[in-house]
Design a protein around this nucleic acid. Structure first.
Lengths: 126, 126
DNA sequence: AATTTGCTACTACGGATGTAGTTTACTTGA
DNA sequence: TCAAGTAAACTACATCCGTAGTAGCAAATT
């Protein structure tokens, strides 16, 4: 399987919107960005084009004279890539990452317990 | 406190070496890179210079005609920044990150149990 | 002292990224 | 049908990053 492309921060933000909207025009994506940080229409357009080149979204149809775009890659695959990249930086070990999360209070023991349960359930079959 | 600078992948790799060496010349850093992926001396030099500009390392002294460099920022602060950045992409929640780690087998329940213990010990005081 | 060696400083350059203006083409309302 | 409004395409551009060459100075060696 082809290794999913690496997306930049901004591309990620746009992808997030496309994922949420399911299918959207450039204009719709742009207007989904909070007004106080909304970039120019053409900026969003450029990013969407780049996402298209990277195979992250595709054109679905045309409404009026606007093209509609839909996601091609899944949130999961992108997230996995992000995490894998981070792990590489940490020498491949996940433990320090979790340790940091705990330390900074971003993750609580309760969170972990909840996840454990979920994981245990899944663990058996597979 | 000033927000620590964002380092690139390559800068991170170089920092890793500086941290490990404690104090080192550009040449020493370069030669600490595995031969098969060792970049040109001047490439490493450029990165070290950029790290210096970013305030990540500083010149300590001169040995012969070579400058020595030492880390200014800590591994911990950089790691924290990396993780915080990742969390931002995930909307600030750590849970999906850990869920992914578990799912991909990068993290086992044993790892978590070990971390839990460590954290519980620390948890009380603080 | 003169030559060689090694290091620093400076310069360069292509591709990626964030940001957006301009031109062209299509749609739709009057 | 013709103008007004949008949207797509194309072009632009500064900055960052990875990568490295070159010039010049300092140190060591003969």
């Amino acid at each position: 399987m082809k290794r999913s492309t690496r997306l930049t921060r901004f591309e990620l933000e746009i992808m997030d919107l496309v994922w949420r909207l399911g299918e959207a025009s450039v204009r719709e994506v742009q207007e989904a960005i909070p007004e106080d940080e909304r970039p120019a229409y053409t900026t969003v357009q450029t990013i969407v084009q780049r996402l298209e080149q990277k195979g992250a979204v595709r054109r679905t149809r045309k409404i009026g004279n606007a093209l509609m775009f839909a996601p091609v890659i899944t949130r999961k695959s992108v997230y996995r890539r992000l995490i894998d990249d981070l792990l590489d930086l940490f020498g491949g070990s996940a433990q320090p990452v979790v340790a940091h999360l705990l330390e900074s209070g971003k993750l609580t023991l309760e969170d972990i317990k909840a996840l454990e349960k979920k994981e245990e359930k899944k663990g058996g079959r597979k």
